[in-house]
Simulated scan of single mutants.
Amino acid sequence: MIDRNSRYAKSAVLHLTDAEGREIAYLDRRIIPDSPRIAARIAVEDGDRLDLIAHRAYGDARQSWRVMDANPDPEPLTLADTPGRRLGLTQPGEA
């Protein structure tokens, strides 16, 4: 069961049969949009982390994946390293 707020909530459950005939369930790939729709912006504060930003923005620290999706970066864990940086936020419910 996948939580409705999970980044994988809309992913299809696929099945594979292995060489011994066992069925293995797995989640389809989640494609991150090339151009996410930015609904708002939030400023990074001193000492911030992505979970703290997600909690301020969405009321749920587990939604940090939304901040990362809205701000494509080769090093997403550094998004909160610069106080004053303005990060884009997607609308809740968009994945």
Rank of each mutant, 00 (worst) to 15 (best):
R66D: 01
D3K: 10
R29G: 08
I53G: 03
V67H: 00
Q63F: 06
P72M: 04
Y8W: 05
A12C: 03
A39R: 14
A57N: 07
L14S: 12
H15N: 13
D69W: 04
T90W: 01
R85Q: 08
E45N: 12
P33T: 07
I31K: 06
A40P: 03
D46A: 14
D48M: 12
A95F: 03
T17K: 04
V67P: 00
E75I: 15
D81W: 09
A39P: 05
N71E: 05
D81S: 14
Y8K: 02
R56Q: 08
I2Q: 13
E94N: 08
M1G: 13
I32Y: 07
D34F: 07
R66H: 01
K10G: 00
S11I: 09
A25W: 07
K10E: 02
I24Y: 03
P36N: 10
P72K: 03
P36E: 01
G84S: 04
Q91A: 10
D18H: 07
A70W: 00
P36M: 05
A54M: 04
D28P: 06
G88A: 06
R66M: 01
L87I: 10
P74E: 12
M1D: 14
R7T: 08
A95E: 08
M1T: 14
P74F: 10
A25H: 08
Y8M: 04
L77R: 15
E45C: 10
S6K: 02
V13M: 10
Q63T: 00
G47T: 04
D18I: 05
D69N: 09
W65D: 02
Q63E: 07
I53S: 05
R62P: 06
L50G: 02
D81E: 15
V67G: 01
A43R: 12
I24K: 03
L14P: 09
K10I: 00
A57V: 07
I2W: 08
G93K: 08
R22Y: 11
Y58M: 13
L89E: 00
A43V: 13
I2D: 09
D81K: 13
S35G: 10
E75K: 15
A61W: 00
E45Y: 02
P36Y: 04
L77T: 15
A39Q: 12
I24L: 11
L16M: 08
D48T: 14
A80Q: 05
L27I: 09
L50W: 00
G47S: 02
V13A: 14
I32S: 13
P72S: 03
A19S: 15
A25T: 09
T82C: 08
P33S: 11
R86I: 06
D81C: 08
R62M: 11
D60M: 10
I32R: 14
N5Y: 07
T82L: 13
D46V: 11
L89K: 01
Y26M: 12
R49D: 08
L52M: 13
I53L: 11
D48L: 12
P76I: 15
L89S: 01
G93Q: 06
T17Q: 03
Y26T: 11
S64I: 07
